[in-house]
Design a protein around this nucleic acid. Structure first.
Length: 424
RNA sequence: GCGGCCGUAGUUCAAUGGUAGAACUCCAGGUUGUGGUCCUGGCUGUUGCGGGUUCGAAUCCCGUCGGUCGCCCCA
């Protein structure tokens, strides 16, 4: 049987309706926050990704050599494309630039729950902003989830800072060459047994005393409990900003978050679903952070930036569990029924007239004189009312409410108003 | 790349190693002007695919492909 490739999805109308619901909320809230929508090519030069992440990334990409002998790849993330676009034309835009996109991203790896070979992601970025831009971006990520129907009980932003970590590690005497590996251990901390975490640190040459200080920092849930180094002030400002937006209830300070990607520089955050006991569960719904050196490193253009990504797969699973995704395909409002051969012409004219006026209108494409069949069809396609053509021109139309089964004869001149009333 | 579990009709699932079935869906009817739940009839399968064991395989074994969950990795 022919089917979609592994890790790729078919969107039948029922699934597409859900996808459209999520996309439209993403778009609507981003625009409410003043973000402009953009897009780039789904296929990029392979070099765009190897330049940033090294050669290892190649075997996780869909990549091939095209007929022009170019090494190309389907985009696995949006940030490189954004950086490329921004660097090329940033002089055309006042800073800060608030941009968002809903790209389809691709990754060649074995699929598992919440993780396919293809997904869509809301990507929002602010380029050339300061600390308030970070507040703004995190606020957008929270507001997006609220608009989808989730509540304070359902998710939490875990806010952290790589800058704080770096300065803290300097204070502890841990040299820069070890930071990435220290971050890797911290990143896994909550998923592996504590002995393994300890062993990971010991293998990096950290003393038990240092390990304890690091673990205490990970446990800290308030600014004052953090190691006071350069960077904590910025975190304080961000939390204050979210407080002013009435959103501090959605945010936990949590240095356990460091993010996998190497290019994050200062602030990093991930959003996790909560279980009934308010514990973090499953995968991250969204994640992001600031990358204040990436644009300069790749293109020589010095611009700060912060962004986040929110994928449709984990989010969709969560919304389904919460019964927030019981969305049906868009249905016709009116189904026009022809009651007799003599009225066929008028039926089609009525259909066309209603459509010109902006109604969603359907009618039978086959047995147009069997009223029973037409009414069955009207119900099946989900129409709210049936308009039954029972008279010649210049006369009345029968309007039947398919929910209440009530039917009324309406003067042709008054039918539009009547329909609007019925459909309200 | 590694491991666990699972592949039977369009769908959800039955069938002790002994003739592959049910429900739903879909299609056609239920006498040429009013719908959903009713009635009748019909379609649908090399049991994912390929080997092996056996008198005989949906069932047991091997391989392969696919699904699913986890590991690795991370968007």
């Amino acid at each position: 049987m022919m089917q979609a490739l592994p890790g790729f999805r078919d969107f039948y109308p029922e699934e597409f309706a859900k996808r459209h619901f999520i996309f439209s909320k993403w778009r609507e809230v981003a625009q409410r926050y003043g973000f402009w929508e953009y897009d780039g090519p789904p296929l990029e030069s392979l070099e765009l990704y190897t330049k940033k992440s090294g050669e290892e990334i190649v075997n996780q990409l869909y990549h091939f050599v095209d007929k022009g002998e170019r090494a190309v790849a389907l985009r696995p993330e949006m940030t490189p494309t954004l950086v490329r676009m921004v660097a090329a034309k940033h002089r055309n835009y006042k800073k800060p630039m608030k941009w968002f996109s809903i790209p389809q991203l691709f990754r060649y790896e074995r699929q598992q729950k919440g993780r396919l070979r293809e997904h869509f992601q809301l990507n929002a970025d602010i380029v050339g902003g300061g600390l308030q831009a970070e507040v703004e971006l995190i606020a957008l990520s929270i507001h997006t989830l609220l608009e989808l129907g989730l509540t304070k009980k359902d998710f939490r932003v875990r806010l952290s800072s790589r800058l704080v970590w770096q300065n803290f590690l300097i204070q502890l005497g841990v040299t820069g060459d070890k930071w990435d590996r220290v971050f890797a251990v911290i990143d896994k901390m909550e998923r592996v047994p504590s002995e393994k975490t300890e062993k990971g640190f010991l293998d990096l040459g950290l003393t038990k005393e240092l390990i304890e200080k690091i673990q205490n920092a990970v446990k800290a849930r308030s600014i004052d409990a953090l190691p006071q180094v350069e960077g904590t002030g910025e975190l304080r400002t961000i939390i204050k900003g979210l407080h002013d937006f009435g959103m501090c209830d959605y945010v936990n300070l949590d240095l356990g978050i460091v993010r996998g990607l190497a290019y994050y520089s200062d602030t990093v955050f991930e959003i996790f679903a909560l279980d009934k006991a308010d514990n973090y569960t499953g995968r991250a719904i969204a994640g992001g952070g600031s990358y204040n050196h990436l644009i300069e490193n790749l293109t020589g253009v010095k611009l700060s930036a912060i962004g986040f990504g929110m994928g449709d797969v984990v989010l969709g699973d969560l919304l389904s569990e919460k019964k927030l995704l019981d969305i049906s395909p868009i249905q016709p409002e009116i189904f026009v029924v022809c009651a007799d051969r003599r009225f066929v012409d008028k039926t089609y004219e009525t259909v066309a007239d209603f459509r010109r006026r902006g109604f969603r209108v359907d009618y039978s494409l086959r047995n147009i004189i069997d009223v029973k069949e037409q009414l069955e069809r009207a119900s099946e396609v989900g129409a709210k009312v049936a308009v039954i053509v029972t008279h010649e021109f210049g006369s009345k139309l029968e309007v039947k409410n398919l929910m209440t089964r009530q039917q009324e004869s309406v003067d042709q001149e008054k039918v539009i108003g009547y329909l609007k009333d019925q459909l309200r």
